[in-house]
Amino acid sequence: MRIGDYKVSYAADEAVFRSGTVRFWLGALFVGLAVFPFLAGDYLLYMANLTGIAIVAAVGLNILTGAAGQISLGHAAFVGIGAYTAALLITRLGLPFLLCLPLAGLSAAFFGVIVGAPSMRMKGLYLCIATLAAQVIFEYVFKNWDGLTGGIRGINVPPPSILGFSLNNEFRFYFVTAPVVIIVVTAARNLFRTRVGRAFIAIRDRDFSAELMGISLFRYKLYAFALSSFLAGVAGCLWVNFIKIVTPEHFPLHESIRYLAMIIVGGLGSVLGSIFGAIFMTIVPEVLKSALNLVSAVSPKAMAFLSPLQTVVFGLLIVVFLVFEPHGLAEMWRRVKNYFRLWPFEH
């Protein structure tokens, strides 16, 4: 229980961890994250890794689309660029995994800037379609530049290792994914305490008046594109090292839409929302699968409906959230938290 808000200095009010309660729960979360891999089985760890990777990518997209208001239908292509860059650096140059993480990010950021710079003059639908074109064109390149990307067969990578310690299973890889997620989430939260994050939101809310407030639209839109595709690239690098193969089929338009769905269901412009969204959109298809598994005990044909049912539910989630809870799971979480803040003395 926590009542009221008494602070004696502005520093205390601006502090990263605002109160003992927050510190306590954050501590509990870290302990939970550390203990989790020792309790969970392979399947759960596999899902945890995939979710973590999705969180990194979703945080990136949420900075660009949720916070800075620049719609992108090409996020999966940037994840793909990160994945291909990492695969090439590892298989051709033999670079170590840890070095590949930032390099894959930088490579994706480079292409992000190339796509972003001419898009500066576009807004709304036009930008959306320009990024759609980028998605289509990158996908085409992944598929057809055999010499570089291996075409539809893709590229296989060996299990990554850090200082000779092989990360060849879900359990070990978790200890890379989790810290990367924590670093990315912390950095994104930090950004929104400073002028950079405020400038992003200003551009989203009213871009013209933002310029009159001294914000260079060009520079900050470019920052948003670069940062978002950097994180996509990092996610791509994690992904290829976890799955150990990269093919064009892994980064279709639908995957870009899935990332958009994550940030909408989670909460546009909210770092916490990206986390919720990524977890939710990874878990729901699995829950559906389990449910159909139960049903198939009674009627054996049920599993045939899995894929179309997942498609329907995916669309329904997007529509239902947009219509009924446009601020997503993050807003629901805030309401629950506020309820318990004064609980049981809410009156």
């Binding site: 950095a187 930090n190 950004l191 305490r193 400073t194 950079v196 670069a226 940062l227």
Partner: peptide, 9 residues
Amino acid sequence: TGLLGGLMY
């Protein structure tokens, strides 16, 4: 504060 400074805070 620039992009990197903001990320590290």
